[in-house]
Design a protein around this nucleic acid. Structure first.
Length: 443
DNA sequence: TGAAATGTTGGGGCG
DNA sequence: ACGCCCCAACATTTC
């Protein structure tokens, strides 16, 4: 048993259970110093948005409390990651840094630099997979190419070995002294505008709550998930997306918990959609800003001033299309939108308003508590028809029909909207326009 | 994880 | 009893 110290660098893995970096640091006999570094600039152009920051603030508080209960602490710092790590290493005389990987292109590049630099300083750096079922570089089709169609990817994933069980939360071993921590408040994660009130009212971030929600889902909701998941008026989904994004629960844990449960496959398939999005972003790192299908660079988006006025109406939920407006208001008020409604609202922006999907992606990025670069990118490209396995551009949602199908009693719509506004466009006319723009692209 | 347009079929009303 | 029409229900094609 050594008594040397290691930094455990928490990032998108704000949990103690099934945390490979933490588990292995303890396994190796280190006294561990949990740290979190706030360095949003390093993720440009996808620094965490406002809603994400509110969530993060709460999650860090939860994680700190959990650590404290076991005689540890979460050391908070802000500043460039590498510099901050080096400072902490100097202050604590730590010999090693452990972390779980992230998969956003900018973060991958940054982490590679950090690893290289720390190795030059003779620091032992070890990184692990804590966020995915499988590493994205391990999966190729029979031709050795990345999968581009979900079904093929899904079939392949199901044939793989899932036998590694989640790691338990290890008993923590702490040094006699911790370095100084900045205060959580000094990270300024809570915005000046009152956007955080609805989020705080709707959500309880943290590992404990994530596990509770999973149990609730397993016991009550999973049985008729297939029927209920598309009904926005009903809490038929797990609502685990923000917890998954921040790593308050791991997909492996979810898999293990549900794999022998009856009727769990449709839900596990959704977990693999998440996996697929990480895979795609890893294989095609430019896609968070550029369409995967290059011909879409020439698409005739509406860039007029009318379009920018309409974009504002879309953001505010004032399009006059009830289901779209309800969704956009749910988003603003709670930091979350039901997945079915995300598709409808996104389709409306891209196809009825012909506004570039990147604008919608940016808005979702700022307002969703579960804003996740991989999921957000794949979702928007799917809707726009320019991504992998995308619905063809000519698949156009009819907001009225979708509402009739999935919110037949108008319950959801009435929950989030109270007045009737006039449609800002004519769906049938916009549909025709979108179709002709698509035709143009094909020629 | 779409919707509209178009095509086909078959049952029933009715002369 | 038969042919014709209508149209709903379903299937297929098209965007």
């Amino acid at each position: 048993m050594t008594s040397t110290k290691a930094l455990v660098w928490f990032r998108s893995d704000l949990r103690l259970n099934d945390n490979p970096a933490l588990y292995h640091a303890i396994q190796k006999g280190y006294q561990i110093i949990p740290i979190f570094i706030w360095a949003p600039d390093e993720e440009t152009p996808w620094a965490p948005g406002a809603a994400s920051r509110v969530w993060l603030h709460q999650s860090l508080a939860c994680l700190h409390q959990t650590l404290k209960d076991q005689g540890s602490q979460l050391i908070l710092r802000h500043g460039p990651s590498l510099e901050t790590l080096k400072k902490l290493i100097h202050e604590t005389k730590a010999h090693a840094v452990f972390w779980n990987r992230r998969y956003e292109p900018a973060v991958i590049a940054r982490d590679q630099e950090i690893k290289k630099s720390l190795k030059e300083d003779r620091i032992d750096t070890e990184s692990f997979n804590g966020s995915l079922l499988f590493e994205p570089w391990e999966i190729k089709n029979k031709q050795g190419q990345p999968y581009q169609v979900f079904t093929a990817y899904w079939n392949f994933i199901q044939s793989l070995d899932f036998s590694r069980s989640p790691y338990p939360a290890p008993p923590l071993s702490s040094p006699t002294q911790f370095p100084k921590s900045e205060s959580l408040e000094s990270l300024n994660l809570i915005p000046k505008i009152s956007l955080d009130r609805g989020i705080r009212h709707t959500w309880s971030p943290g590992e404990k709550q994530a596990r509770l929600l999973l149990q609730k889902f397993k016991n009550a909701k999973i049985h008729d998930y297939t029927e209920m998941r598309d009904r926005p008026a009903i809490e038929g989904t797990s609502r685990l997306s923000p917890y998954l994004h921040f790593g308050e629960i791991s997909p492996r844990h979810i898999w293990e918990e549900l794999k022998h449960q009856k009727h769990s496959l449709p839900y596990l398939r959704q977990i693999v959609w998440r996996e697929f999005s990480y895979y795609l972003l890893y294989q095609y790192p430019h896609t968070s800003t550029e369409p995967l299908r290059a011909e879409f660079k020439n698409f005739a988006w509406d860039t007029s001033s009318e379009a920018s006025a309409r974009f504002k109406k879309w953001q505010r939920g004032e399009t006059g299309f009830a289901i779209v407006d309800a969704g956009m208001r749910e988003l603003w008020e709670t930091g979350w939108m039901h997945n079915r409604v995300r598709m409808i609202a996104a389709s409306f922006l891209v196809k009825d308003l012909m506004i570039p999907w990147q604008h919608g992606a940016q808005w979702f990025w700022d307002t969703l508590v579960d804003a996740d670069l991989a999921n957000n990118t794949m979702g928007w490209q799917w809707v726009a028809g320019c991504g992998a396995d995308a619905s063809p551009f000519f698949r156009i949602f009819n907001p009225a029909l979708q509402a009739k199908k999935f919110d037949p009693q108008n319950t959801y719509i009435q929950q989030w909207t109270h007045e009737n506004t006039h449609p800002i466009v004519d769906h049938e006319i916009q549909r025709q326009k979108a179709l002709s723009a698509y035709k143009q692209l094909k020629n």
